[in-house]
Amino acid sequence: MNLKKQFMDGLLYQNPVLVQVLGMCSTMAITTSFFNGLGMGLAVTVILTLSNVIISAIRKIVPDKIRIAMFIVVIAGFVTMVDLFLQAFVPALAESLGVFIPLIVVNCIILGRAEAFSYKNGVVASFFDGVFQGIGYTLVLLAMCIIRELLGAGTFGGGLLAGGKGIQIIPSQFPAGMLTLPVGGFLVLGCLIAAMQWALSKSKK
C-alpha cells in the first residue's frame, strides 16, 4: 500500500473527473456556486470513503454474480443517510443540490471505485483510496465553481461569503452570464480536461 502513490493518483494521474472521466453529471450541473461545489464534494467524499470501506470489508462474502447489486444497495444506503442528514442539519445545501443528492447513487465514481479498487483491496487501502479520489473530485468541483462563478457572475464564494451572495469581485455588468448556464458547464469542463491532458503529456516528456 503506497500512500503517496494513492494520493498523487487521486489528485492527478487518476483524477476521477479529469482523467477517468467519471461523475460528470454532477460536476457540470451543480458547479454554479462555491457552496454547492464544496458541499457536493464533501458529501461524495464521505459516501465514497464509507462505501469503499464497507465493500472492502465484505468483499470476501459477496457472491460475484450479484456484486453490482450489492454495491448499489450499500451505496444507496449511505446516500440516503447523507441526504437525510443534510435535510435535517444543512437544509440550504439540500435545497440547492436538489435531486443531485440522491443521484450520487449513480455517480459513476463511487460504483467505479468499488468495482475497480475496494472489491480487490484491503480496508485501509480502500479507505485512503476513497479519501484521495474524493479530494481529487472536490478540487475539480471547486475549480469549476470558482471559474464559472467568477467569470459568469463576478462573485466569489457564493452561498458562503457575504451573507450568501459572495464577494462581488467583478462588477455585475461585465461577466458572461452564459457561463452559469448549462453551456458554461460543458465548456469549462472541456477546457479543464484539455488542460489536464496537456499537463500530463508535458510531464510524460
Partner: peptide, 23 residues
C-alpha cells in the same frame, strides 16, 4: 484542433455549443 483537446474536451465543447442552441 489543438492536440490537448483530443477526445473528451472537444466533445464537451461541441456539446456546450449544442446546449447553447437548445437554450
Amino acid at each position: 484542433y489543438p492536440k490537448a483537446f483530443e477526445g473528451f474536451p472537444i466533445a464537451l465543447i461541441t456539446a456546450g455549443l449544442m446546449a447553447l442552441a437548445f437554450m
